[in-house]
Amino acid sequence: MKLTAIVAQFPVSLSIQNNLNVIDSVLGQTNPGDLVIFPEGSVSGYSSDITFLQQINLDELKAGLEHIKRSATAKINVWIGTCVKVEGKWFNTAQGFSPNGDVQIYHKINLAHHERGVVSAGNTLPIFELNAPEGTVKIGIQICRELRYPEQWRWLAQHGAQIILHLNNAVGDDTYQPVWKSHLISRAAENQRFVLSANNAAPKQVSPTIAIAPDGKVIDEMVSAELGIFRVELELSKVSNWYLDQRRSDVVEIKSGVSQ
């Protein structure tokens, strides 16, 4: 079974309309059946100065998300990052929009230090199903710094995720770029899953925008301050439990009180 994915990066701004204009330009290059992934905060905007949340126009944000939902009816699956306010609480989310109108949401579990006390953390690691031209595909989601917590990725793999999407907004000190890239390669290879990571485009990216195969080999990547996309074909038969099934679970086992 094959799936075509588009991984897109662009300079995420604090203007919802500007972000939507760029997202629309990318979606205009898609084909029916494509899976499209954008960076963390790609609709709402994102900043390490968490006071940016106070400037978000909630009505404009809601309208923007509805716009992307309608765009997905062109027979594509779209995953975007956005901060949202639900019942008075802020969450850093990844939201998936499917051709049938469904909206799937992941709430970031492991918050950045500057988010804590302002943004509420999620507490579940759901597996999402999306309908692709050749069948159903299972995916997991991680956001930004969660690449440093391999147990979360392992949990997703153990529970059936074939692809793990990583929505990222890591900019500022590009000397760490080899470290973050190495983490992503490890997450793919140790779990034998495809990893697609979309980062904010910036002069100093802490991590590349990258697609990695289940054997740990890089399929494509980019490091740039500009809008950029690449299209990759994922052969899902390469996903395997070969290493997972050899685990010494009698010695070490990942357990959790909440699985979904």
Rank of each mutant, 00 (worst) to 15 (best):
E221A: 09
S71R: 15
V258A: 01
L196Q: 09
L156G: 01
N31I: 06
S207I: 07
A198S: 07
A202G: 06
F38K: 03
A201F: 03
L125P: 07
E253W: 00
K62P: 00
A74T: 11
S47N: 15
L165Q: 02
K2R: 15
L61F: 05
L14T: 13
A211E: 06
T51W: 08
L3S: 10
A188Q: 01
D174V: 08
Q162F: 09
G81T: 03
Q205L: 12
N199M: 08
A74K: 12
V232W: 10
R247P: 01
S98G: 00
N21E: 13
L234V: 08
V84I: 15
G172I: 06
I212A: 01
G228Y: 14
I229K: 00
G45W: 00
K75Q: 15
S98D: 07
Q162R: 11
M1R: 05
L227E: 11
Y176H: 09
E233Y: 00
N123W: 09
L244Q: 12
I164A: 03
K89S: 10
K75E: 15
R247F: 14
Q9E: 12
G101H: 12
S207Q: 08
L58D: 02
Q29A: 08
L236I: 01
S237T: 15
F194V: 04
I23D: 08
I229Q: 14
L3K: 04
L244Y: 13
G228P: 10
V43S: 01
I109F: 05
E253G: 00
L111H: 03
I127G: 08
G140T: 09
C83G: 13
F97S: 06
L3I: 14
M222L: 11
P214I: 07
N200C: 13
I109Y: 12
A157P: 00
G216W: 01
A188N: 05
N57R: 00
R145W: 12
L227A: 06
I143N: 05
Y46M: 06
T51I: 03
E134S: 15
L244W: 06
V78F: 02
G257A: 11
I164H: 02
G257F: 04
N169A: 12
N168L: 09
V118I: 14
D24M: 07
E151L: 02
L14F: 00
S256K: 13
P11Y: 13
V252C: 08
R116W: 11
G41L: 01
G45N: 12
R231N: 03
P99R: 05
Y46R: 04
R145V: 04
I163G: 02
V195S: 07
S15P: 04
P133R: 11
S186R: 07
N200F: 13
N168G: 13
Q177H: 10
S48I: 02
V84K: 12
R148K: 14
I16L: 09
